[in-house]
């Protein structure tokens, strides 16, 4: 009898302790206010493992290593090319302890999804790094040069099956830019969307696709093995360590940077914005971050303040125009 009583008492005490600890935990999670040095929330508007998630987690590890904030957490809010996360951020006006990953993919998605929230509704903080689009063909393709591809497009644009990422993404937009550079109506593009660069590779290898567009990292293995041939890269100037000419060098007026950066909620004071810029600048200077740039094969294009804002403005306008031409919005 006493044995059971003791058992019950222990259970009750344990229960109370658990509830207390749970409440305390919920309380710490709830507080934290607006100070990024107390608690910094990094929102990745994508699934775990995707590009934005990688950036967020790289930032997190460098913030932690340098003790820039007491607590950092990565929050995944995937959906609709990042626009779900964007609209959530836009609703958290004045909260100076939140950063969201953003980039060229989001500017495209804002167009395709007809999102009510745009990048004008949040505070730009910094551009971190870029990667670029590569256009490839199978090794025995009749397209030896960019000019071959351009003339095929001029002859019969629908006969060239182009594969890349989802409709409205950077791959699609860049294919549209190329078509326009060839002087062909952009809406004639025969574009086939895939879930990622890996799937595009199989489409190219089995002969279904004539041309593939994706980021360099996705094709690098196959290019090295000689199964795919690169026609050009979308950067303005040649890339270090990548033996592919740019389109601009080859006389085709088309370039696109798949940039990644961070933005913060709207309604921040100048001091709040400066604080976040300071944290991101320290992250950028850290060894972890430079290491990450190297590992992921990105190009370091760090920008903050006015410089980043004006880049964002011109890039948004350019992407808007091309996606309208593609009939996406």
């Amino acid at each position: 009898m006493t044995g059971r009583l003791i058992l019950r008492l222990t259970a009750a005490v344990l229960g109370v302790v658990l509830v207390g600890a749970g409440l305390a935990d919920a309380h710490t999670k709830a507080s934290g206010g607006k100070d990024p040095r107390e608690k910094l929330q990094l929102m990745a508007p994508a699934d775990p493992g995707g590009g934005w998630d990688t950036v967020a987690r790289e930032i997190q590890s460098s913030v932690d290593a340098h003790g820039l904030s007491h607590a950092t957490e990565v929050l995944n809010v995937p959906g609709a090319g990042g626009t779900i996360g964007l609209s959530r951020l836009a609703n958290q006006s004045g909260k100076g302890n939140k950063l969201m990953m953003s980039g060229a993919v989001m500017t495209g998605a804002i167009q395709t999804t007809d999102s009510a929230t745009t990048l004008d509704d949040v505070t730009p903080i910094a551009r971190l790094a870029d990667d670029y689009e590569v256009v490839v063909v199978p090794k025995n393709s009749p397209f030896r040069t960019v000019e071959d591809l351009m003339s095929a497009w001029r002859a019969d644009p629908r006969s060239v099956a182009v594969g890349g990422g989802s409709a409205g993404g950077t791959d699609h937009l860049f294919a549209g830019m190329l078509l326009r550079a060839a002087g062909v109506d952009t809406s004639e593009l025969n574009y086939i969307a895939y879930a990622g660069g890996g799937e595009v590779v199989t489409g190219l290898l089995d002969g279904g696709l004539d041309v593939g567009v994706s980021s360099y990292a996705e094709f690098a293995g196959q290019i090295e093995a000689g199964k795919l041939r690169a026609l050009g890269v979308s950067s303005q100037s040649p890339l270090e360590g990548v033996d592919i000419p740019t389109f601009v060098e080859q006389g085709v007026d088309a370039s696109l940077a798949n940039w990644r950066g961070v933005v913060a909620p709207p309604g921040l004071s100048d001091a709040q914005r400066a604080e976040l810029e300071k944290i991101v600048t320290t992250v950028h200077g850290s060894e972890q971050w430079q290491d990450a740039v190297e590992r992921n094969g990105w190009k370091d294009t760090f920008q903050t303040g006015e410089e980043f804002r004006s880049f964002l403005e011109s890039e948004t306008a350019r992407i808007k125009r091309i996606s309208e031409e593609l009939g996406l919005s």
Partner: peptide, 17 residues
Amino acid sequence: SAVQLAFSTGLGLSLPS
């Protein structure tokens, strides 16, 4: 409460507080 603890301290995932 146990779930709250397990998720936020154990897995680092946030539940609404």
